[in-house]
Design a protein around this nucleic acid. Structure first.
Length: 210
DNA sequence: CGTTCGATGCACT
DNA sequence: GTGCATCGAACGT
């Protein structure tokens, strides 16, 4: 795979099915490393290899939004797997998750970073004045990722097994490592962050140790 | 209705 | 390392 915008569309490989997402969240999280996130819009297509994710599992996980139970906000987590859960964080950044587990079990995988493989220029334009020079920084961090991909609130509850926002298996394999999750104040003991050890696009290291 | 606060990112010390 | 933008959901009054 090249990082050139002139490369052909990400057409080879198959779009991940609902069965893929309807599994234990940690398995889904690990398997998502190396998969390709693709977003088709009228402005163009952006795509990138997923290199960093975090799992948020159930009402007993204090860092999962479902810890406060079912509500209008958390409803997507309880909904069918293979749908997007998008919310606004700190009033500034949209964060995108892939809902996992069978319907009724609230859980999701947060997409934290991808390596751009298509639509770099579009990503850069969407990042605007704050666009980085380094390509691998375009989608480094969950807020930067959604900004570069043009993902916002309108994508909440969208089906990601069809349509224009999907994740595709292109056969890439990346060595991965588990560490504790980032940026949360509770549930930090759970080592539910998974990232590709060889990727320059992975966001900051854990606050304490690995 | 008012207050709190967060799965971030960036500027700044 | 700290400060802060900015907003909607949740919760207390």
């Amino acid at each position: 795979m090249t990082c050139d915008d002139e490369s052909p569309p990400v057409a080879l490989g198959h779009t991940l099915t609902r069965a893929f997402y309807a599994r234990p969240t940690l398995e889904v999280a690990r398997d998502l490393i190396g998969m390709v996130l693709v977003h088709h819009t009228v402005a163009g297509t952006t795509a990138g290899v997923i290199v960093e994710v975090e799992a948020y599992i159930g009402e007993s996980d204090p860092a999962c939004h479902a810890a406060s139970g079912f509500s209008g906000r958390t409803a997507p987590l309880y909904g069918p797997p293979g749908h997007a859960y998008v919310y606004l964080n700190y009033g500034v950044h949209y964060l995108v998750n892939a809902v996992t587990e069978p319907e009724g079990a609230p859980a999701a995988v947060l997409l934290r970073a991808v390596e751009p493989i298509r639509g770099r220029d579009l990503m850069s334009r969407r990042r605007g004045a704050l666009a980085p020079r380094v390509v691998t920084d375009l989608c480094r961090g969950p807020g930067n990722l959604t900004r570069a991909f043009g993902i916002s609130r309108s994508h909440n509850r969208r089906d990601i097994t069809a349509d224009r926002l999907v994740i595709v298996d292109c056969g890439f394999t990346r060595p991965a490592r588990w560490t504790q999750r980032i940026g949360i104040r509770v549930g930090t003991g759970r080592r539910w962050r998974c990232y590709a050890v060889d990727s320059p696009a992975v966001s900051r290291l854990p606050r304490t140790g690995l």
